[in-house]
């Protein structure tokens, strides 16, 4: 082991520099957990076998403190790692909607996928409670209607006014912004700016 916490730090760095969500590093996580268990056992062993030295001998005291600091650092890095991935998934729920894009789905652990669904339910329940879809209007509205071009076939949608509309590729439409805002964020249609 080159340095305590090295593995854990590596996955956190990978996460902080990535532009898309990197694959969940289950192996590194369990390695970090093993390391904490190992360090913890070391600390306990020293305290049990040489309690006097741990208190009076500076080098032994330093060893205890060092091991303890290393294991706490491992834990903090792991907390940061998981927490930031959770934040990423939460933001996706706001920006893209209730369904994970395929590349993100592949990058998440089973637990993370579960977290995403649970967060979706939580937010859904709250939005029902306040009777307003809060994920609309992420930016202040400027125009009531906008012109959009369909980038990929998206079947039929029903507009707020109750009209049916079939979105075929390359067709353009002049629609209520609120009807297509989520489709723009998903990349299904694009906003035509003149």
């Amino acid at each position: 082991m080159a340095m305590y916490g090295a593995d854990a730090l590596e996955v956190l760095k990978e996460l902080s520099t990535a532009t898309r969500l990197p694959v969940y590093r289950a192996k590194s996580v369990s390695k970090a957990v093993d390391e904490v268990i190992h360090l913890h056992a070391e600390v306990l062993a020293i305290l049990r076998e040489r309690p006097e030295a741990a208190r009076n001998d500076a080098s032994v005291t330093a060893s205890v403190i060092f091991h303890h600091a290393a294991l706490l650092r491992n834990k903090r890095i792991m907390l940061a790692y998981h927490y930031h991935r959770m934040q990423y998934l939460q933001n996706l729920r706001w920006e893209v909607g209730a369904i994970l894009p395929p590349d993100v789905r592949e990058a998440t652990s089973a637990l993370e996928t579960g977290f995403f669904s649970a967060y979706d339910r939580l937010l859904g329940d709250y939005m029902t409670e306040v009777d307003l879809n809060l994920t609309e209007d992420l930016t202040p509205p400027k125009d009531l209607f906008i012109e959009v071009r369909v980038v990929q076939d998206a079947g039929t949608i029903i507009t707020e006014a109750g009209d049916e509309l079939t979105l075929t590729r390359n067709s353009t439409h002049y629609l209520r912004r609120s009807d297509v805002e989520h489709l723009i964020r998903q990349g299904v249609v694009e906003h035509i700016v003149h």
């Binding site: 970090a32 904490v36 649970a118």
Partner: peptide
């Protein structure tokens, strides 16, 4: 209610992801 459920959700995720594997005191 949202806050309570959110905390539970977050704690559950962190616990199951790795905290439960740590020594109990940690």
């Amino acid at each position: 209610e949202y806050t309570q459920r959110y905390v539970d959700l977050m704690a559950e995720h962190l616990n199951e992801s790795f905290l439960n594997g740590l020594p109990e005191k940690l």
